[in-house]
Simulated assay, not measured.
Amino acid sequence: MFKFKTPSDKTLEIMSEVAKGNCEKNYEESCIAKIRDLTRKEHVKMTSSGNNSIFIALASIEGDVIIPDQGGWHGFKQIGKFLNKNIISLKTNMGLINTDYLDELKFKENSALIFTSFAGYTAEQDIESIIKYCQENEIITIEDASAGVGDSKKMLGCESDIILASTGSPKMINVGSGGFIASNDDETFSNSKVPQKLSKPNEIICSGIDNELDNVKSNLELSLNATDYVKKHIHNTIHSNKRGVNVIIPHDNAKSICWDLKKTLTTTKSGFITTCPNYNRVKQKAICVEIKNLDYNCLKKENLKIIIDAVNSQLQV
């Protein structure tokens, strides 16, 4: 049985002590300082969830909101519509943004492109080309870096105009609740004073985030390496040559295969085998192996080989 990712023992211990009132440290300030360093952004706000971070970001946009046609997060569209923003869908290569397709769109001034660091969690976006194009065309970039924070290549989670993330479960910063938003432009926060106050996390959550931030770089690297290993040993994965934190395998019989895999690859809590079509992944029939959902102790080669053998066995049936 595989263990579903939970906050580390040290994180839970710190949160417990803060809940008991044993708190001398200002954890919110500590979180902000660490996030400034990771994102290279001057202004940081802690929030109660990733969706609240998205709300704050989109509230600052005066023009249209451009979202990928798949491989993003369903909250982009839901929150954008709630804020009465005009939503424009961008054609992608199974979630990966191609700036040539942006040339085909018509949008207002002060519009924004919102996307995730990894398309469908399985393939890193070409941040360099996206940023270059958007800067030349005065498009604001909003990056949901829930899975990209702490990238050792120093590209994901820091180059976009606005960086936001969820620190819920099972994210890279894994506390079960909370989030943040960061920007070099203080005006990002001027249109959402009330939501910011309503979505401010308590000190218990901030203490957990603070500790998880210390390990986010190594945890992301471990997840990327584990996913790469699995991708190399399963045939026909989507974006097989791209870094990511899950593995997606297209298959016409995906639903049945996923059902069988869930019975074989069991976990202590929620599962790590999911089914497509799914806007948050890809909009075609596929099997998703969510490596990001697993406890880091499960990412050893002997465990990954069990996953590989189980998947390959089902694909050959």
Rank of each mutant, 00 (worst) to 15 (best):
G75E: 10
G178W: 00
E109M: 14
C134T: 09
S270F: 11
D126W: 08
L164C: 07
N278W: 02
G179A: 02
N184R: 05
N110W: 04
H239E: 10
N215I: 15
T274V: 12
F76W: 03
G150K: 09
P277W: 02
T11M: 05
G80W: 05
S117R: 06
S218A: 09
N22I: 09
G80V: 07
S223V: 11
N211V: 13
V230W: 03
C288V: 15
A145M: 11
K77Y: 09
F107G: 04
S8G: 05
G150V: 08
N293E: 12
E302S: 13
I308K: 08
N110P: 06
N184M: 05
D295K: 04
W73Q: 14
S256M: 14
E128T: 15
S199K: 09
I234S: 10
T141L: 05
K85I: 06
R40L: 12
N202R: 00
I87F: 06
K171I: 12
I162F: 02
L222F: 00
N174I: 06
G178N: 01
E104K: 13
F82W: 02
C206H: 04
D9N: 13
V194E: 13
C31L: 00
V247P: 01
S190W: 04
L96C: 13
N225I: 12
L38F: 05
K77G: 07
G178L: 01
Q70F: 05
G157Q: 07
D309S: 09
E143P: 02
H239L: 05
I131M: 14
I56C: 08
L83S: 03
N241D: 15
Q70C: 14
K20N: 11
K217M: 10
L265P: 01
E136V: 10
K292F: 15
I97G: 07
H251E: 11
L83R: 01
K108C: 13
M46Q: 01
L105R: 04
E42G: 00
C206I: 02
I131A: 03
K154Q: 15
T39C: 04
G148H: 11
K153E: 14
K106N: 15
N280G: 02
G95L: 02
I307S: 04
S48M: 00
K197I: 14
F115E: 04
L224T: 04
G21P: 08
M155C: 11
I163K: 09
E42M: 03
I35H: 05
S111T: 10
L102S: 03
I88E: 07
I204F: 00
K91L: 07
D103H: 13
K232P: 03
S218W: 02
T6E: 13
L261V: 07
D295Y: 01
I32C: 01
D260E: 14
